[in-house]
Design a protein around this nucleic acid. Structure first.
Lengths: 211, 211
DNA sequence: GTCTGTAAATTAACGTCGTTAAGTTAACGA
DNA sequence: TCGTTAACTTAACGACGTTAATTTACAGAC
């Protein structure tokens, strides 16, 4: 009775085909720049077919970003992490910035666009808190380790708060870059300089003593 | 020959009427949530009339945000500024955060949405660099003063870079709040705590010595 | 008072989009 | 061979931003 399985596999194949085409268009044109019709034409299906695999446009691209950002957490895992806890935080920050800069449309949809109160998608429960796929959890873990090693100032005890501050700091650099890059009325310094100073400054402010 | 003047005034009145209605809807519903038809109905004109005063939807709401953010720079001016330079930077940061939190839709359109390479609008030339209407210029000025007073570490000499880092820091807190507030998979600390720690940390990292 | 030119405003439509109801095709089990 | 079900398409709905063509309102000229 391998029929159902074959069908399921076929269905998943189609789904992946949609996702792959969506990814290609999305990277080039962003969320609003991609129409369902265009996407359908690319994979040579009718637009309706997409709705057999995804509830609507937003869910499709959310799934897309979810997959690709899982790879981010993977990168954290794979990259050999420095042993020094401060270096490690720096390394995470730089990796995050690089990822956001490489995939600005992904970044925009995931972190610069408000989404409806959204019930958790399937699979989200396993994701949350698992450092292997959840980049925030990985950051928090590293912050915890740094705190255990006594790196931070004594007053600072809330690992969530610290993690969120570090996150917001690099997020500020990336998102300002994505949204305001073209702006004329401010002489923007090169992205790398801003990212470097931001990491330097925030970590200095968090640590027990200037090195 | 007061005819032309009367006509012009009338036209400006209509324009302001449009802007006022747009503001009301925009605050409640955001850019995508407001349709030109709805806006037209509110002011009891036909949708086409709007296009006699504004080139398109985006330009309308850009003008709206431009006006309202000029008020932000005004607030900086009006508020009695602390004399201590660090306190002053803190004050600016807090004011900025408060403004962004109060008008999230404004903030989103202005600082979280990429706009086409955009030629400068009329009036932008006078705005740029003028601390009375340009909030960034005001920040940069204050940074310059702090630097002149010898507050910062010696290596830090680029006022633009420092300003942009401070800006990105608070921007990170605000924009993450706006975009990710509803998210379940991270236990967000209260906005105020995050903003406070961010300001504390970045300024500590910039200043010559811990106080 | 009538005519004329012009600015202000409207009607009606175009083209595009996300989405869906209804209908068609194809493949399998009985 | 028939009936069931999944996969897929056709055709359309309703909303949107925008525009071409048209009408209305009104100041000045005769």
């Amino acid at each position: 009775m391998g029929v159902k399985e074959r069908r399921e596999r076929k269905k998943l194949e189609t789904r992946d085909k949609i996702l792959d085409a969506a990814r290609e268009l999305f990277i080039k044109q962003g969320y609003d720049g991609v129409s369902m019709r265009e996407l359908a034409q690319m994979i040579e299906y009718s637009p309706t077919t997409i709705y057999l695999h995804f509830a609507d446009k937003e869910q499709l691209f959310q799934e897309l970003c979810r997959q690709d950002f899982a790879r981010l957490a993977q990168v954290f895992q794979d990259a050999e992490m420095p042993t020094d806890c401060v270096e490690r935080l720096m390394h995470i920050g730089r990796t995050y910035v690089e990822f956001g800069t490489r995939y600005p449309n992904h970044y925009r949809l995931m972190f610069m666009t408000p989404h409806p109160p959204g019930e958790l998608n399937e699979g989200d429960c396993e994701v949350k808190g698992n450092p292997e796929v959840d980049a925030y959890a990985f950051l928090k873990l590293t912050v915890q380790q740094a705190m255990d090693a006594g790196c931070f100032r004594q007053e600072l005890k809330d690992t969530d708060l610290i993690s969120q501050t570090l996150w917001a700091a690099v997020h500020g650099v990336i998102s300002l870059q994505i949204a305001k890059f073209h702006e004329i009325w401010v002489d923007f310094r090169p992205m790398e300089q801003r990212a470097a100073l931001m990491l330097d400054v925030t970590l200095r402010g968090l640590l027990k003593e200037a090195k």
